[in-house]
Design a protein around this nucleic acid. Structure first.
Ligand SMILES: [Mn+2]
Ligand SMILES: [Mn+2]
Ligand SMILES: [Mn+2]
Ligand SMILES: [Mn+2]
Lengths: 224, 224
DNA sequence: AATTAATTTTAGATTTGTCTAAATTAAAAT
DNA sequence: ATTTTAATTTAGACAAATCTAAAATTAATT
């Protein structure tokens, strides 16, 4: 049992950025990371070499890169910390969901594992952060979001719009008007048995009504 | 109203160390700081020059140094954060008073002022940290500890032994045996009207009884 | 007062993370 | 298949924080 290696804040930020970027496609580019971290491609290349030397990254020059298993494991622990701190800030210190990210960006680098496990317990082992993102558990495991249409989304479950069925201009115009886009967080607050219409609540507390026809064409993902 | 300057963790650690060291004597030496921060005198000199350039330190080479008013102000904010986080760890996350210092040493460098003020409020504006040290308020003000003998120390008030009246070998032997030394944190849990003897509780929860004669010769300082 | 010892500072390196400008490689367009 | 463009990497530099070894200064002893 070797002592848990301590990584720099910078290293941790790179791991997290790469983890998030490879969620989408699978392979990540230098420019992607530079853009995500507001830095320069040359700086990214420098760090890629360091990450490879630390066996956190699978990387061959000019051929793209992705996290090693160890790299993924570390990234998930940073993400766990980030999201638990965000939850703490919103639930215990009454911050708005829109003002916690920056602070969590610092707090996620506090190293004590015991601290974060105690915090998790103190918060009641929350499963989602204030933005609806899943919080990995102590072992880095988290429930993968399933995708369902809004008619099948349980009431009061925060979910993220992930795809649209009918993509006709008319449908998209309607969604745009209602404020629904890919990535929008929604929650079903009420279902009307009469016509299967439902009321959606957004993060900004506003409520909109959509028809059954619309609801069955909006897919969302959520946890557990 | 200029934007609050952000200092590096290293800078903040130096300011805090110098602040604590000048509490004792008034003027601080390079070796003192090197010893306190587990670093080398040459490194300290390097930093002293930087602190002077930032107007945080009054420093003439070979002539000693002390914090400027601005330096003191910054140091007090770090100390405030350190102690509030320690309080949080002990009171909310059930850490022992002996395991919070290292974690607070990291948390004290989180920059958000709003965070620390919200935390303060969440904790109920505590006046002392788990070690009995005073917590500066949002403006860096804190109640200076007064010195009284143990007979006049209010019950349930955490205090720190600061001096001894009768310093005879017999008295000191007794104090040593009871576990009372300069710097020891004690709390009066019970006063017996019959003979003015009293029961002291230490941080490690153990209880000892001392006579009135002993009590009036042990001076402690505490807050407010 | 002169010498010795301790403290402090400088000189020069090193590590980490970043940058710009130039070179290299890969991808896209003709 | 060339040529042009875009992406990536290298070369060389820099700032922050640290170190060791040597020099300068101050303090303590003879
Ligand atoms: Mn971060
Ligand atoms: Mn989040
Ligand atoms: Mn610290
Ligand atoms: Mn403390």
């Amino acid at each position: 049992m070797s002592a848990a290696p301590k990584y720099s804040s910078s290293t941790e930020n790179y791991l997290k950025a790469i983890f998030h970027l490879q969620k989408n496609d699978g392979v990540v580019t230098t420019n992607d990371v530079a853009n995500e971290l507001q830095t320069r491609p040359a700086s990214v290349t420098d760090m890629l070499k360091k990450l490879k030397a630390q066996k956190l990254l699978l990387y061959e020059k000019y051929k793209g890169f992705k996290l090693s298993n160890e790299g993924k494991k570390v990234a998930l622990q940073i993400i766990r910390k980030h999201r638990l701190w965000e939850f703490f800030l919103v639930e215990k210190l009454n911050f708005g969901w829109d003002e916690v990210h920056e602070i969590a960006e610092e707090l996620e680098h506090i190293s004590s594992k015991k601290l974060i496990d105690r915090l998790d317990e103190f918060l009641g082992f929350p499963k989602q952060d204030p933005h609806g993102d899943p919080i990995p558990d102590s072992n880095g495991k988290f429930t993968v979001p399933k995708q369902v249409d809004l008619l099948n989304l349980p009431v009061n479950k925060i979910a993220e719009v992930s795809s649209i069925g009918d993509q006709s201009p008319e449908m998209l115009e309607l969604l745009g008007h209602k404020g629904i886009a890919l990535g929008t967080r929604v929650e079903v607050k009420k279902k009307f048995a009469f016509d299967n219409s439902l009321e959606l609540k957004f993060k900004n507390q506003s409520i909109v009504t959509i028809s059954e026809h619309v609801a069955k064409n909006v897919y969302v993902k959520y946890d557990e």
